[in-house]
């Protein structure tokens, strides 16, 4: 187990202050579009911590000044443009396709020791987010949270 994950606290009480991060992915690049501080409870992350190189999919890590992970949030494949198709009998299937751009939001706790946010996943390019053989997860981007001003395009 990577040491950076040893610092992730299992919160016994939720954070009552949150940051809503909005990201935009396009042309192989990801940008932090906005950062909004709100007085609202941050939903906890439930389940085992994913790890780079071990787990697939996408997630966001909140890191402290020592680059240790203090919170994570699993994302439901925002970079794999896909849609679910529902039948009246309750069956579901997902269709995949390419997309020039996508946006997604992440809610993280507004912590004094939070310094940066990292997006972990397989690929920023939908065509390479392979439907046949997924790449290993890696850090795709990192953003500083030290600047309190809202970042916008």
């Amino acid at each position: 187990m990577s040491s950076r994950y040893d610092s992730e606290e299992r919160q016994t009480s939720p954070s009552r202050n949150s940051i809503r991060l909005t990201f935009r992915v396009a042309d192989g690049e990801v940008a932090l579009v906005s950062k909004e501080r709100l007085r609202m409870i941050t939903p906890p992350s439930v389940g085992e911590r994913p790890e780079i190189g071990t787990n697939g999919g996408y997630w966001v890590e909140l890191r402290n000044g020592q680059d240790e992970v203090i919170f994570h949030r699993v994302l439901t494949a925002p970079l794999l443009h896909s849609v679910e198709l529902f039948a009246p009998d309750g069956t579901i299937e997902r269709a995949f396709g390419e997309s020039a751009e996508s946006r997604f939001e992440v809610l993280i706790p507004d912590r004094d020791d939070g310094r940066s946010i990292a997006l972990i996943g397989e690929s920023l390019t939908p065509s390479k987010s392979s439907r046949k053989k997924a790449a290993e997860t890696r850090e795709l981007a990192q953003f500083s949270l030290v600047d309190d001003e809202k970042e916008s395009e």
Partner: peptide, 13 residues
């Protein structure tokens, strides 16, 4: 058919 299935252990719970 496996399209879109991540390699490795899925991160979802």
């Amino acid at each position: 058919n496996g399209s879109g299935t991540p390699a490795g252990e899925p991160s979802e719970p």
